[in-house]
């Protein structure tokens, strides 16, 4: 192959990857509209688009259904999916482990513990309004667990494998603590706790959406700046170091972003496990690991997956909104298997 042919091939590769990102974005937009259209009173696709684009012209009941009831859920699904998958992608890269994700390394368990403390014992940050208490507690624990993990990773002699093992140990520790609280909880508190940990978009409100959107916006420039370094880190730690990359600083930055994204997401919607693991894998199969494409593709895949799960959660049992945490895995597993089986076209 001549250099010219190869250069052309490389340019095609970049084009194809950009096109895939665009395709994912289009699919996501479609899924978002479909999500809003789906529900007890079924709306037409075009009606939804019309109300979304021009709310003032729509009839009041329609406007309320679309803007106040369904759109918050649908947008929350997209944002949470994007945040968790982006967090998972960064974790998998900096820990060099395809099984790393906020869920598998303890973020969700930590959030559950925080929630359990608030629900069962009423323990929490004192100066917060009541309806934010649970959320704030879950966030503090989720964020804290990631920082703890990072701190453990800094112990002398601990490598990235050790961090993964620490994370798994944390899952068990937090789960045990939650089980203990469940054991002593009143029946009512127990029910609330179980429902909380199932993961549900029913807690979506516009202020919460704004907080999560801000978190995503805040990390985006840092992700973009780290993209080349993260790509180089895939060539191995020694090589990355020899390129002059401070891998420790890179890792710490990534962990901070992951803590924020995962902490906020889990605090708002509870345990939604699969998407942080599968989003990055789907992205890797589609666009490879050039992080300029990999990170946005992971975010888009995660968002799409959770948006589809949100639609499915309304359809599984007609008339009932099944907690999305349950549906994610049900939708995610077949999607994941299909992707794995059609791999090799990633190029």
């Amino acid at each position: 192959m001549s250099v010219a042919t190869a250069a052309l091939g490389y340019r095609h590769l970049l084009l194809r990857r950009s096109a895939l990102l665009l395709l994912l974005a289009v699919l996501l937009a479609t899924s978002l509209v479909a999500d809003v259209a789906t529900g007890p009173s079924s709306l037409g696709f075009s009606d939804v688009v019309r109300v979304l684009l021009n709310p003032d012209a729509a009839a009041r009941p329609l406007r309320v259904i679309v803007w106040d009831v369904r759109l918050p859920y649908a947008v929350m699904a997209v944002l949470v999916g994007a945040a968790l998958a982006l967090a998972g992608a960064e974790m998998q890269t900096v820990l060099n482990n395809p099984l790393a994700s906020p869920f598998t390394l303890g973020v969700s368990s930590a959030a559950s513990l925080g929630a359990a403390l608030a629900i069962v014992l009423g323990v929490g940050l004192p100066w917060l309004p009541q309806d934010w208490l649970l959320t704030a507690n879950a966030f503090v624990f989720a964020f804290g667990s990631m920082l703890l993990l990072q701190a453990l990773g800094r112990l002398r002699g601990a490598g990235v494998e050790a961090v993964v093992l620490f994370g798994i140990a944390l899952v068990f520790a937090f789960n045990a603590a939650v089980a203990l609280l469940q054991f002593v909880a009143t029946e009512q508190a127990l029910q609330q706790l179980v429902f909380w940990s199932m993961g549900s978009l029913a807690r979506a409100t516009w202020p919460r959406i704004a907080v999560l959107a801000l978190a995503l916006l805040a990390v985006t420039p840092f992700c973009a700046r780290a993209a080349w370094k993260l790509t180089a880190l895939r060539l191995g730690e020694e090589r990355a170091l020899s390129f002059g990359i401070d891998s420790r600083k890179l890792r710490n930055g990534a962990f901070l972003r992951v803590s924020l994204l995962a902490g906020v997401s889990v605090a708002f919607v509870g345990t939604i496990g699969f998407v942080g693991l599968v989003g990055p894998h789907a992205a890797r199969l589609m666009v490879g690991e050039d992080h300029r494409f990999f990170l946005p593709a992971a975010a888009l895949s995660g968002a799409l997956l959770l948006s589809l799960a949100s639609i499915a959660s309304k359809l599984v049992v007609p008339g009932l909104l099944v907690p999305i945490g349950i549906v994610t895995a049900l939708v995610g597993v077949p999607v994941f298997l299909a992707l794995v089986l059609t791999r090799g076209r990633a190029g």
């Binding site: 490389y10 790509t231 895939r234 060539l235 199969l285 490879g288 690991e289």
Partner: peptide
């Protein structure tokens, strides 16, 4: 050594 399982060209 080079690492395994890297999805880069």
């Amino acid at each position: 050594s080079l690492p395994h399982g890297v999805a880069l060209t």
